[in-house]
């Protein structure tokens, strides 16, 4: 394997691990459903995008690259939609929005 590609994909993996971890820490630490949804959709989708890019750099065939990005697009679409669904259900179900009481 070409070392440049190896280094680049390793860097992408490290970055994606960071975002996945940060997303989950947000899921545990954030105060209400809506803020947790923020953590989930943004950090995890970025993490998956970086991971897919890293895997695409390593894969030998263009078909695999296209398929990996197709998977990412599907995940993006699915998570944006289900994020809207959960937020909508929480909002119409009357779960209050957490407000910062500190100045």
């Amino acid at each position: 394997m070409i070392p440049v590609v190896d280094i680049a994909s390793t860097a992408l993996f490290v970055a994606s691990g960071f975002y996945f971890l940060a997303g989950s820490v947000g899921l545990v630490r954030f105060p209400d459903v809506y803020t947790r949804l923020h953590a989930l959709t943004k950090a995890d989708n970025l993490g998956l995008g970086l991971l897919v890019t890293g895997l695409a750099l390593r894969s030998g065939s263009w078909y695999t690259v296209a398929k990996l990005y197709a998977i990412w697009l599907l995940v993006l679409f699915a998570s944006a939609t289900s994020c809207y669904l959960v937020a909508h259900a929480a909002r119409t179900g009357g779960i209050p929005v957490w407000r910062n009481e500190r100045p």
Binding site: F18, Y19, A22, G23, V25, G26, R29, F30, P31, D32, Y34, T35, H38, A39, K42, A43, N45, L46, G47, G49, V97, W98, R99, N100
Partner: peptide, 24 residues
């Protein structure tokens, strides 16, 4: 923008004082 969004939310999650000021 998704880079900006992911980094923003990751820093807020890892920040010790958890700076959030949400509203609708």
């Amino acid at each position: 923008q998704s880079f900006a969004g992911g980094t923003d939310v990751a820093l807020r999650a890892l920040h010790p004082r958890r700076p959030l000021d949400p509203s609708c």
